[in-house]
Amino acid sequence: MNDNGIVIKINDLHKTFASQKVLDGVNLEIKRGEITVIIGKSGGGKSVLMKHLIGLLKPDSGEIWIEGSDITKLNEKDLNEVRKKFGMLFQEAALFDSMNVIDNVAFPVREHTKLPEKEILRMAQERLRNVGLAGFDSKMPSELSGGMRKRVGLARALILDPDIILFDEPTSALDPITALTILDLIKETQERLQKTYVVISHDILGMFRIAHKVAMLYNGRIIEFGTPKEIRQSKKEEIKEFLKATGIPGFSGGDR
């Protein structure tokens, strides 16, 4: 079962939208307790891949093994059991507009457990403190900045102590400084909790700060997979091109 600590194993995943091949045979193994970053161009199928991981989309063919079960074959009920192991931070945080901050964070606990209200509030407040938003309990999502919303989203994703947390473009639409604090928050929580993090992003520079492993998604395939260092030393043209686009001389092939 516990083969080399692989949590997620993707086998030859294919997906086509209206005659456009988005995923063209993706193979990937994600290890427990690591931050794995999937990097690719905008509109290159990253989000689609992530939606497959959580069962929001069904593949045309291929398998996704998560802790011993192929989620592409599961029905909605069993899929929900798997989903309970997941937390997810959405691109725009996807906080519920109708609820205030504390209710948003407490929502998964309220719906999935029968804990007393006091305990739920205590948990939610602790998570909010962890992301640096203590005292924002009764603010509505519309009153928060983009960075704050992502923090609340992270607190909500973490509240049920999931094994795997997915991040959809955690730094997009943020100013560089806020982006850095979010990245630091991701790294800090991961180091503390030792959970499996899967991040998709096009922000190479930022991701290299936090990634244990990087997977390069190009034309619907993973063309390179390894540590950041291995990626930078890759000889593949496509990756060199991608790394050069950061505009930092010597980033590609360097060993920093």
């Binding site: 959580i54 996807a94 906080l95």
Partner: peptide
Amino acid sequence: AELGTMRVTEQIDALIVMAL
């Protein structure tokens, strides 16, 4: 409008991901 906004801002997906 409310459900539409929830859809385009992925709040509906968020519910699904929470197994709800």
